[in-house]
Design a protein around this nucleic acid. Sequence first.
DNA 1: GTTTCCACTTGATCTCTATCAAGGTTTATT
DNA 2: AATAAACCTTGATAGAGATCAAGTGGAAAC
Lengths: 247, 247
Amino acid sequence: MTPMFKIDHTNCADCPIRHRAVCAHCDANELEKLEGIKYYRSFEAGQTILWSGDQMNFVGSVVSGIASLTQTMEDGRTQMVGLLLPSDFVGRPGRESAPYDVQATTDLVMCCFRKKPFEEMMNETPHIAHRLLQMTLDELDAAREWMLVLGRKTAREKIASLLSIIARRDASISHEGNAGPIVFDLPLTREAMADYLGLTLETVSRQISALKRDGVITLEGKRHVTIPDMGRLMEEAGDDSDGGFLV
Amino acid sequence: MTPMFKIDHTNCADCPIRHRAVCAHCDANELEKLEGIKYYRSFEAGQTILWSGDQMNFVGSVVSGIASLTQTMEDGRTQMVGLLLPSDFVGRPGRESAPYDVQATTDLVMCCFRKKPFEEMMNETPHIAHRLLQMTLDELDAAREWMLVLGRKTAREKIASLLSIIARRDASISHEGNAGPIVFDLPLTREAMADYLGLTLETVSRQISALKRDGVITLEGKRHVTIPDMGRLMEEAGDDSDGGFLV
DNA sequence: GTTTCCACTTGATCTCTATCAAGGTTTATT
DNA sequence: AATAAACCTTGATAGAGATCAAGTGGAAAC
């Protein structure tokens, strides 16, 4: 079965969304139906988009920036449970409320669809339901991969795993699958990284310094990262070299 | 929208599956179509049902016993990424292979459907696709809830969280939502619990002893557990008392 | 130009959990 | 009844990461 939506980071001319996600522009048949319910929203870094328990009256895709899903315990401990990069889908068709906080980790633009009409369209067009199921399965795979990181990896491996995810995601967007050094800007503070990895920000800082000292990464300033050897980084992450991350 | 399948632990006369899962007997319209492709399979405790990467040519529901999903690193570290209790759905419609090992943790009976015809039926009957999306979202919620456990909870809280999940699940099956002590048999070895919680089996044993010493649980033998006060257990787990676990 | 603030780094120490090791129970096997 | 094989418990010790604390650097605000 060939997917009705183009996927995997191909852009179309008039839409900024990379098409791992559902997008109106990708399917001429749906375009008119969606045009009316589509809108863009911008958020500032640090802004909370939704609190856990809030009514969620839209679904959408990240256009630019990074959003994060966070769970919080009563005493304030927090764990990031999802990182939404450009092209990722946000939303829970058929669900009333958000089960975790959704935050803009950086300045963020989202392409939103009002939920009701989106769901109606989903019910009428089976391939969209099918596509959503596939995306949800992707997210489930990514969440489970992350459970291994959280449960069994050392601090150093955790950092390497996170850098590896961001590097791979970034590389696949900027220049299609070539070798050579990978360069990118870290979009997360040390604290956000710690929240994602189940560490403290001090440990994150120490391990980044260690990876730098050992030549696994190069840093200019605090955010600009160069990965001279991706294979080496993935060894440090404890992954089989071919890698199975899906985020 | 009312679900076409009965859900939430109601049994019908001729089917052993509790209906959080897709099941032929729950929808007369689909019954005949499914009859031909449905079959039961039994597994012994410890048996591996699927290795990571194997072709997955069926989907199905757990009828009795417990199955687990496990990820393994090259050096042997393992993390359980899912626990499948009776009524849980196993399978990845539209996917070729399993991304993790599937094992029978106890003796296990599954109700299986051959994948191809199941997928065809899914494509023809939108409400089954819809139901599968909802179930996958449930699993995603559970996985993300578990990320908080793995990333931020102490060993004691982790044990309490696991007991809490099993107790709640068990209680909702055996006697509909009443108060009073909850009694059940632990279906997992200390080692399996450790693999699920990102701990060692020694730490699991020590924390269970501690919970017993502190009167949070009572143990007869090594597996028979009594929870005198479920609220107390949930406090120990660090949950807001109303609890959000979805497993 | 100075001050303030925020993100980050580094050091010292402590604590929780892993690790190593030994022994105990229960259940199955001979 | 004796033996073996899982499974579990408990103790001693070590180590990874948390916690507490001080200080650096850079950018924005005054």
